[in-house]
Simulated assay, not measured.
Amino acid sequence: MSVKIRLKRIGKKHKPIYHIVVADSRSPRDGKFIEKLGIYNPHTDPPSTVLKMQNAVSWLMKGAQPTETVKSIFSKNGVLLKKHLLEGVKKGVFTDEEAHKKFQIWNKKYNKVHPS
């Protein structure tokens, strides 16, 4: 089974809001999904995102493939960086404390607020 992380459209006509979901790649866009990871609202300025970061990283580590849009959202919110750092820890490149410190530096630089 191929698993994708993609957007599920909700909201009114001409005012879409999207759920970020983990779904089987064969299921329809607004169909059945495995887990909801967050919400993306493109109508606010800047676009707002609410994410369950640990769950998103967990699915990426298991091999789920994000769509291009979700990959962009994850990149802006630090999910891909967190995954990259955890893979470095797993391979023994650096320790968990160093990875945590690097992620905190990134958070301060880009003024992101994420629970660690």
Rank of each mutant, 00 (worst) to 15 (best):
L60P: 02
E68C: 09
L85I: 05
E35V: 04
H43S: 13
L80V: 09
N107K: 14
I105T: 15
K101Y: 11
A56L: 07
K71H: 12
F33Q: 01
W59Q: 00
N77P: 08
K8G: 00
M53I: 12
A99T: 01
L85Y: 10
I17A: 05
V113H: 13
P46N: 04
G92M: 08
H14T: 13
E87G: 05
V113W: 10
W106P: 05
S2E: 10
N107S: 14
L86E: 15
D96C: 09
V113R: 11
W106H: 15
K36R: 13
I20Q: 06
Y40M: 05
K112I: 12
H84Y: 15
H100N: 15
I39Q: 08
V57M: 04
L81G: 03
I10A: 12
Q65N: 08
I34W: 06
I17P: 04
A99P: 08
M53V: 15
V3H: 00
K62Y: 11
K112N: 06
E68S: 15
G31A: 02
Q104D: 10
K36E: 07
D30Q: 05
S48E: 07
F94I: 03
K91Y: 11
H14W: 12
L81S: 12
P47G: 04
V22H: 03
R29W: 00
K90P: 02
R9H: 00
A99H: 09
A56Q: 07
Y110N: 14
K109V: 06
R29G: 03
L51A: 06
V70R: 05
S72F: 12
K76F: 01
L60Y: 06
H19S: 08
V93K: 14
K101C: 11
S72T: 14
S75Y: 05
G78D: 00
P16F: 07
